[in-house]
Amino acid sequence: MSKFPKALIVLLSAGVALPAFAADGGKLGLGRPATQEEVSAWDIDVRPDGTGLPEGHGTVAEGEVLFTDNCAFCHGDFGEGIGRWPVLAGGQGTLTHERPEKTVGSYWPYLSTVYDYVRRAMPFGNARSMTGDEVYALTTYILYLNDIVTDEDFELSKENFTDIYLPNEANFISDSRYDEPFNTEKHQPCMTDCKAEPAKITMCARILDVTPSSVEDDGAGTVD
């Protein structure tokens, strides 16, 4: 009792109302308003319609220097990818192949994603280190590596950014999984004699033998 503040004892004994429970849907008044500078520091996303692009510009030539110094170590001088690091250029026309190569030029639907991602997460291990102009220059150079821009003097800027479309944009479709036969037929599953013949093994993992600690643990695939 000795630790109990005297003032509180007085309040309680005087019958002062205890704090009310928050009403459903009511605000609790927690947190504080964000300042404009704080919002600007974190709100760096860019959308396909250009929303979020900063003022600035960059050329193919400027981009080439930056790319060689900051990106080529992983992505290769021509965006071909070193080892398992992402391939950035080429691959057009391979999406229906056995081993498609998904690059900015062959797969990515929107250029804004390149700007947004480079600015927020690249170079790998030194994120947020590029200026707005440098990101414009790198984005321009990646377009050049993919033959989407062919003029070496081309300059990308906030003003002309949304004039550029990536070639694969139209090939993105909405989720159509629920049109697939096994997702539309709501029948009772077969329980007996569901196959005319006994099941035969058609493939085994030991052919590839890529499981870690197995003899040849170097397989194919990706988790992207």
Binding site: D45, V46, R47, P48, D49, L95, T96, P100, K102, V104, Y107, W108, P109, Y110, S112, T113, D116, Y117, A121, N171, F172, I173, S174, D175, S176, R177, D224
Partner: peptide
Amino acid sequence: GDEPWQQREETSKYTDLLASGKARRFT
């Protein structure tokens, strides 16, 4: 916001390429 942002992890990744060359997004 009023529209999706089409970020890297919902366009170049985490989209499902079909045999036709079309790719499903927002799966």
